[in-house]
Design a protein around this nucleic acid. Sequence first.
DNA 1: ACTACCACACTTGTATGGTAGTATGGAACT
DNA 2: AGTTCCATACTACCATACAAGTGTGGTAGT
Lengths: 225, 225
Amino acid sequence: MPFLGQTPIPSARDVVYSKLKSQILSLELPPGAALSEKESSLAFNVSRTPVRESFLRLAQEGLVQVLPQRGTFVSLIDPELVEEARFMREQLEKAVIRLACDSFPADKLAELRANLKEQRESMERKDDLRLFELDESYHRTLFEGCGKLNTWAVIQQMNAHLNRTRLLRLFSDHQWNHLYDQHERMADAIEAHDAALAESTMQEHLLLSVKDQVVLREKYPHYFI
Amino acid sequence: MPFLGQTPIPSARDVVYSKLKSQILSLELPPGAALSEKESSLAFNVSRTPVRESFLRLAQEGLVQVLPQRGTFVSLIDPELVEEARFMREQLEKAVIRLACDSFPADKLAELRANLKEQRESMERKDDLRLFELDESYHRTLFEGCGKLNTWAVIQQMNAHLNRTRLLRLFSDHQWNHLYDQHERMADAIEAHDAALAESTMQEHLLLSVKDQVVLREKYPHYFI
DNA sequence: ACTACCACACTTGTATGGTAGTATGGAACT
DNA sequence: AGTTCCATACTACCATACAAGTGTGGTAGT
């Protein structure tokens, strides 16, 4: 009898998918790079089947492009798609934080505060990677508190396109102070039920990531359509 | 040499996927129904491979649930997911029609007017199916005119969950008159650059479909989680 | 030198066999 | 009768073989 609630062992397909996805998002597999079912199956020591299924899933998410009988390629970055992803995220996050200002569970607010505390600590340690995670976690908690986790999941998927450009921030000037201030102001606004302030702060917050794309585009023009 | 611009012949996988999806959305395959790679492969006269790949794609869209070594089942309708899909659509459509009030290309506005004309004709013919298509086409044109077709694609995917409940409208009182009036008022608002009117009308417009779920839920409680 | 053609080395698409886990119904035992 | 156990018939997962389309480089013919 299986343990209830046991984490199911990840299938070969899931492993390959996660690995490939992280390689694509980190630009380790750059836009335009050629993939092949056979080559990947050798690299991961599995058969073509799970590799192929990973390709199909990545293709559905728009991260690779499968051309029948020709090959599979990491998708070039489509600036239009990136802009629309940012647009969708802006609309949904603004709507959610308005909801949060109306009502937000106390325990989730406490989570936000705890997250902010850890952000301060990570800034002192200059732990950029952890700050990146905390940023995601902060926004996730916002959606969770509003009962909109499915919406967060959709945003996460669209973020795949944004993140290939946002990665740059880890290596350039991060402005973590600025980001932290905005996070704190948003939490305060929720507590004070100040929807207008929360929404405008969120809008600023999400605009910060726009410039990354410009930088990346100048540096690697062949990564774009 | 292949004809350039020729439509690629649909693969067996695509055929099976479309067929299954339409059967699920039409409730011909009701929520909870068991599927099987083997059974479907016999039904469609293809091997298990393209069937399996269709299952995986449907699973990623949340329309079926794959339980390893147990079976594949049509997903039960999750009211929370349906509500969030409606929520996302509301936010995005409201944002887009605000954009449209700011600027909207003349040819797309003409498309909206032509669509409205055909809506009137279809209402006279009581051609409900065509009206359903025209409704979708109307909203698509809105997104197209704002350069937000990718956003429309995301909405379409979420609509899969809404549509299983919206299907009812085809068989009940449709209130097509009401829907038409709203469509016309939105086109007028865009032309008059009246964002407030456009947005509030859109909000009403999208609220109309909420009641369908209540009806369906009373009639088929075992279709829901 | 140039062109047309073809063999070949790729690619993804499809079919199928084997493996391991799961549910179920009946038999054997208490 | 009720419970335990096991054979069996499923399931999806994975490996592998074959089919069919595509691009390329070399070769033969002009």
